[in-house]
Amino acid sequence: MTDEDLSGFPLALEGPDVPMVSFRKVSKRYGELVVLDALDLDVAEGEMVTIIGPSGSGKTTVLRMLMTLETINDGVIYVDGKPLTHMPQNGRLVRANARHLREMRSNIGMCFQHFNLFPHMTALENCMEGPVHVLGMPKKDARERAEELLEMVGMADKRDQHPSRLSGGQQQRVAIARALAMRPKVMLFDEVTSALDPEVIGEVTNVIRQLVARHNLTMLMVTHQMGFAKDISDRICFFFGGRIEEQGTPDELFGNPQKERTQQFLSAVKEAA
């Protein structure tokens, strides 16, 4: 790793309004291809932010970097005030080691487009795996928590089924329960309805609606469901070319987009729907 100049980045974020998630000048490149270009993005505690934009605009990368599935080239990401991609050492920031990443990762949960449930475990076992083997919970408690969460996503009656016996919508609901079982502060939803048949999208979006209404989770979502995003988001970010082209409340962004690219994108999406 080359020496980075991180002198402009604080060791920790302090103050009364520390955002739950903060991207500071974060860049991601694959060779010549710039996926994210000096991204600045703050997400407040309890805020629901939806990222929209054309494919290749870097929206999924934002979530994957937060989940530490991708490394970053420049900048620093903070979660709950503490650096995620880096760690303080001798009064300055250095690249995070595996231990720091593990510690920070416990703040974050993620749901994937293709669910990625463990196929050899039942719905219940999927939801108990992390609590038992990562959090070290007693099996009995982990089972109780898992059952509660499966109940919440309406999957209690299928708890002993393996994923191969579940529909896509059911698998995704189990995946949400599995992520929530780790009690993350931040939840990431990466195109969670994109692989679903149209008639089951509602059962997944309803679960997310419920989460937004009843829990004070910080959430970041990438989606193509514009109506859904408009309903539940506190803020919409329109990504274009690795940057936030425009952002605002759903009413502002969908009702009165200022930038030409946003207008083009939204009208293209509207035509397709």
Partner: peptide
């Protein structure tokens, strides 16, 4: 074993050994 399984394991913070 699909890459998504590794990513799910990472998202649950499972150690490499687990």
């Amino acid at each position: 074993v699909p890459k998504g399984q590794w990513e799910a394991a990472t998202s649950l913070n499972l150690s490499t050994r687990r």
